[in-house]
Each structure stands twice: as structure tokens, then as C-alpha cells.
Write a protein that binds this DNA or RNA. Structure first.
Lengths: 187, 187
DNA sequence: TCTAAAACTAAGCAATTGCTTAGAAATATA
DNA sequence: TATATTTCTAAGCAATTGCTTAGTTTTAGA
């Protein structure tokens, strides 16, 4: 009945994600997206509605990638040391898929922290809660910890993970490793 | 010989600082600065050269304010517990001077982490190094710590401080306090 | 009191932003 | 093969960006 799409939406979102990851949301223009995604603005808007639509899809795609290390954490049976391994994975895996620095989610969290974008904030809070829940589940594996300690430590770890992601954009590997090591000395 | 300035440069920079602190650099336009500073664009450019000039002066002004708690840390004689108090001060004092969230330096650090702005990066690195130095000095007060431990812990604390500032923009007081407490548990 | 120099106002500059649209090109079905 | 329908190209939209400038107002010193 009509002409066929010349691009694959998942493929072009992957490219958009990489660009957003490198530059942040505001510093990525639709013209830059055009070039990176290899399709015209018309196609971008036809497929994703608006710039924010492209971004939200990019985040979804990123989360899907993250699920690899997230699942690993979920399935682990070693409690705290699984969380520690998750910290290491978080700073190492991103290098594997795209060589971009930091974490797209955390970068976004920081970029939008002051502003009040409901859609984006939802994505962030959702992610943070999910993270905290898994941490709690892992911490509960240690029977010596009471519930209050567990929640306190979970709070601590979520913020530490957040700080780690921010640090991984600029700090050296040694600084990062020192940080992770000492973080878990407190647990 | 000529007309006198109708504004005080330090006063208007104070207002600019508050605006940058709330919105970040990119999300603050020169039109917004006009309104907040209460002076015309001509005056802004005459006094500070360019938008970035206003920003750099704002950062200087912020650092000066920060010196109050920085000096307190410097003069302290209790080593690690001075650092811990500095962490508490860092999240409480900002509320006193302007009720803005987080830390302007850290916000800037995050906003410019990906980009490569030399002038701004200089300011950031300078601040981080200064911070690390004081931490090292305080850690050395404990004679049981060897130099390697001191440097490792200093690295850790700088990153923790950074994460804390980011967290203080969005997290609750309890989460923040949990974080500080655990951060110093094993230092 | 006059005047030269600085401070001000307000309009305007080109470039960039996110987004739209008119029209040409392609193609699955009738 | 013909056509209806979608995809694509490329130009253009108003709004906003950082910054400039022509022209007016103010004021310290001659």
C-alpha cells in the first residue's frame, strides 16, 4: 500500500542513546540527532513524536542494556558481595557498550535534578527505587542485620552508587577502585 | 567626569550566583540574568564581558561564602571528626545562604563533566584538589594511619563529598544523614 | 555652566533551538 | 499496471540564544 521505512527504529534509538549519553539532553540538538541517527527530522518526529520522545526511548533502551548486570545482581546468592560486584560491573560494562562515560540514568538524574520534568523524574525515581529494593533484598541475606540497619545501609548504597556513576565520568580507575573498596568496608 | 554606576558589582553577582545555582549554567539565559540582577544586558556585558564571565565571578563569590565552613575545617584539631562535621555543614549551610539545593561547585562539575571547558574545569579541579589536601592533612592527625591509607581514604572522601552534594538536591534529610554516618563508620 | 566621558535604554543582530509542512519519491495492494 | 498511502527531502516557521550598537541620559571636572 505504501513506501516502506528505510530505518529500524530500535537501531536509530541506539544511536540516539549514545549521543544523549555523551552530551546530555539539553546539549543534544535535533540537528545532531539527525546526523547521528542517520535519518531526517521528519522521520524522527514521525517515529518518536518529539525530542523528549526520542530521549525517553533512549532511556528505555539503556535500561534494557543495564538489565544484563541488573539480572546478574538479582540472581546472585552472595548478598553484599554481589552488590559490590554490581558496583564494579556498573563502571566496567558501560565501557563495553559504547565507551561512553558514567551512567546515562545518573547523568540524567543530575541534569534534571533542579528542574521539574514529570516524565523524566518518573523514570529516575522508578530506577532508584528498583535499585534500593534489590539492595535491601541482598542485605537481608545476612541474618545478623536488623531491618533498621538494612534500610540505613540501602540508603547509603544507593547514594554511593549515584556518586560512583558521577565520579566515573572524570576520575581515574584507581580512585574509583579505592572508592568502591572503602564503600563496602562500611557494610 | 562621567555618570556613576547605579549598581554594585558584588551585589548583582550575588543575585546572579543564586540564579545559576538554581538553574545551572545552560538553563540560565542572559535575559533571566537581566531580571534577577536588576540591570540591563549592556551593563552585564560592560561589567563582566560575557555570560561566562558572570558565571566565573558567581563561582568566586560562592567559593568565598564556602570559605566560612572551609576555614572551620582548616582550623579544627579533631582530625576525622572535623571532616565529618564539614560534611554536615556542607549540606546545612547552603540552606542558610539562599535556600538553594546542593552545591554550586558540584552542580557545575556535573554539568560540565562531559564537555571540555578549560576555564570552568580549572575552577573545579582547583577546588577538588584543595579539598583533598585538607582531608589528607586531617587524616594525618591519626598516627595509626600510614600514607597509603591516608591517600586512599582521601580519595574516598572527596568522591563521597561529591556524591553527597549531588544527593542533597533530591534526597531526604534522613537519607543524607544515613549516608554521612555510614561514610565515616570505618574512617 | 558647559562639556566630555561614562552609564544607561532599547532595539536589533545572526545563529540556533524544537518543530512543521509542501511537495517529490517510493511501494504494497487492487 | 495503476493508485492510494506512506516515507522522505528540504525549506521554512516562530521563539530563544548570546551579544552588539545607535542613541539618550547622567554627572564629574574644566
Amino acid at each position: 500500500m505504501a513506501r516502506t521505512k528505510q530505518y529500524n527504529e530500535q537501531e536509530v534509538i541506539e544511536k540516539a542513546m549514545s549521543l544523549f549519553w555523551r552530551n546530555g539532553y539539553e546539549n543534544t540538538s535535533v540537528r545532531m540527532l539527525e546526523k547521528e541517527m542517520g535519518i531526517n527530522q521528519f522521520s524522527i518526529y514521525a517515529s518518536f513524536g518529539c525530542k523528549q520522545g526520542v530521549f525517553l526511548e533512549s532511556i528505555k533502551s539503556y535500561k534494557a542494556k543495564l538489565n544484563i548486570i541488573f539480572d546478574k545482581l538479582h540472581k546472585g546468592t552472595d548478598g553484599v558481595s554481589d552488590i559490590k560486584q554490581f558496583f564494579y560491573d556498573s563502571v566496567n560494562k558501560p565501557v563495553e557498550f559504547g565507551n561512553n562515560k558514567g551512567c546515562l540514568i545518573t547523568n540524567t538524574y543530575n541534569e534534571f535534578a533542579g528542574l521539574e520534568d514529570q516524565l523524566i523524574n518518573e523514570q529516575m525515581v522508578d530506577f532508584m527505587n528498583k535499585l534500593k529494593e534489590v539492595f535491601i533484598q541482598k542485605l537481608r541475606m545476612d541474618p545478623s542485620k536488623d531491618e533498621e540497619t538494612i534500610h540505613q545501609q540501602a540508603n547509603y548504597l544507593v547514594l554511593a552508587k549515584h556518586g560512583l556513576a558521577a565520579a566515573s565520568r572524570v576520575n581515574t580507575k584507581k580512585e574509583i577502585d579505592d572508592y568502591i573498596d572503602l564503600t563496602f568496608k562500611n557494610i
